[in-house]
Design a binder for these strands. Structure first.
Lengths: 313, 313
DNA sequence: CAATCGACGCAGCAATCGACGCAACTCGTA
DNA sequence: TACGAGTTGCGTCGATTGCTGCGTCGATTG
């Protein structure tokens, strides 16, 4: 670990920019060594270098330098997006007359039972309570996803239970929407949520929307079955900073949609390919593929306010 | 501190309108940056932005843009614009690539405008307000249906606007669900609502559900794309007094589904074939075909009343 | 003496400007 | 019922603005 100070030339060489540019960045955006006496040589600490790295990466992505600088300036402990995440051990559990929910807990089992009963009131109450108590992420990963997966499995196996699946989806959708509405986000919507073309499953996207609302981030949600042209037009019109495209199955995961997004007139800062449909090796460069809801949320949060933090509204 | 100077593009993105429209608003209504040198770039201060926000909200409520601009122009205290604002006082309306709502009223027009802007917040607020004020039936017939029909027409004609249609549907769905939840029905659910097989439009059914909830009648809602076997099974399991099957297009209106219902072990008292998909001459005997939402509601209410009479305790 | 500093200027490029026009909707009128 | 007048949002075009990266110059630092 070199905690010695780097000279301007060294930093410039490392970043791949001219020395003059470093000076410009300093006096235009205040993005320089934390301690610097005017007239003396600049000494960049590792922390300063990290800030400049952010600046360089953002500008390389196409962000306006002024924006990137504002963003890099206030990031002392910036990038730790990918953290250690405990992975639930896949364990076979339970059979029986109801829906297999794995070891998702008694609440999930109760929810599954209510679903089998087509008891929409109980379903709605259970989900709403979980949302209020544990938050969107935990409810999604620990309750909704297991139960829905269980119904799906059963549905594939027995070619029945479709009405149960639809009822669950509807109730979950309602509960998520209610949760999102309970915490109305403020500020401009810089994040666009959309399903892939032909994709009709929008529930995970609604969960993400609710999670965003929970975090106080406003967004635009287009919903299911959004054709490429419509998506591109929406991007062109609203110019979001980030776009999340959900694909549930491989059939709906056409990488061309993402390429079209990147080629749009107002290229979004970040394009997220979410859902199990996407294949990592076929994604165009510059597209990020979050592993789960939590990661998608943290990525979206990272881009949140790249433009301004005005105190209006 | 004039630190917050938004560019035209930033403001346009924030409001959801085109940059050109901002310029138009400036030169037509004098609604622009307080200090602007002709030829130079426009710099919107927070005060200017607030004025535009008012403009946006008013137009979303259905106010004529010209009038909205007059309102917004004199809103902020202090610096006032002395722009070329000599407009005629005529209260004409209409214009732009909006959605034809005919003579459905200003609220519908405002809703259509908000939809074009993909402004889900405004859409949701408008619908929720209408639901609370006028009730479900009036909101459906006087607001939602005209706007949705307008979008549909336009969508067929121009092969675009799909994202607007989806957003409207989603917001309407949310609002209807919220309204239904606000008045939780009591008692056992004796009415089953379901889409026909392969039918994916469930919004009218959700409107009926909300209307039922408003009337204090409890129901079970299965949702979209319910296969015949699933529907029959649900009927067998829950034994409803009435079943409403919605079909939006002729392709999904297979009379066999209704026959299967009538042949079910626990034959429902009343089977309603709702939606424009059904053809009166092909319906099996004993199936009623309501003309609109109000009729469907009154039929459902009649069933409830007859039940109360027969099973009175 | 090499590297850097602050100041100044310049060329490329994206965003924006003003002007014009188009398409589409409403409404009054024939 | 059809049609023209009035409105309105927005696309397009050529010119301009303003931001950005960086080279240059004389003075200073290490």
């Amino acid at each position: 670990m070199a905690d010695e100070a780097l000279s301007a030339g060294a930093v410039a060489r490392r970043l791949g920019v001219a020395v003059t540019t470093l000076r410009t960045w300093h006096q235009r955006y205040g993005l320089g060594p934390s301690e610097h006496v005017p007239g003396h040589h600049r000494r960049y600490t590792p922390a300063d270098l990290a800030r400049l790295e952010i600046m360089r990466r953002l500008t390389a992505e196409g962000v306006t330098p002024a924006e990137a600088a504002r963003w890099a300036g206030q990031a002392p402990a910036g990038v730790d997006v990918a953290g250690p995440r405990a992975r639930p051990v896949t364990a076979r559990d339970g059979g029986g007359p109801t829906i297999p929910v794995g070891r998702a807990g008694p609440v999930a089992r109760g929810l599954a039972r209510a679903a089998m009963r087509l008891d929409s009131v109980a379903i709605g109450e259970t989900i709403a309570h979980a949302l209020a108590t544990d938050g969107v992420i935990a409810t999604w990963d620990g309750l909704l996803r297991p139960v829905l997966a269980g119904i799906g499995e059963r549905h594939v196996a027995t070619a029945g239970l479709i009405e149960v699946e639809h009822l669950m989806s509807r109730c979950a959708s309602e509960a998520l929407a209610a949760a999102a509405r309970a915490r109305p986000p403020t500020g401009p919507a810089r994040i666009l949520l959309s399903c892939a073309d032909e994709e009709q499953h929008s529930l995970p996207l609604e969960a993400l929307a609710a999670a965003l609302a929970e975090a106080g981030v406003s967004y635009r949600m287009l919903g299911a079955r959004v054709p490429v042209t419509a998506l591109v037009e929406a991007v062109t019109r609203t110019g979001p900073a980030a776009v999340v495209v959900w694909s549930h199955t491989r059939a709906t995961a056409d990488p061309g949609q993402l390429s079209a997004l990147l080629a749009a007139p107002r290229r979004p800062l970040l394009v997220l390919a979410a859902g199990p449909g996407w294949r990592a090796d076929t994604l165009p460069a510059g597209v990020v593929r979050p592993a789960d809801l939590a990661e998608a949320l943290s990525l979206a949060l990272a881009v949140r306010d790249s433009l301004e933090q005005s105190t209006t509204d």
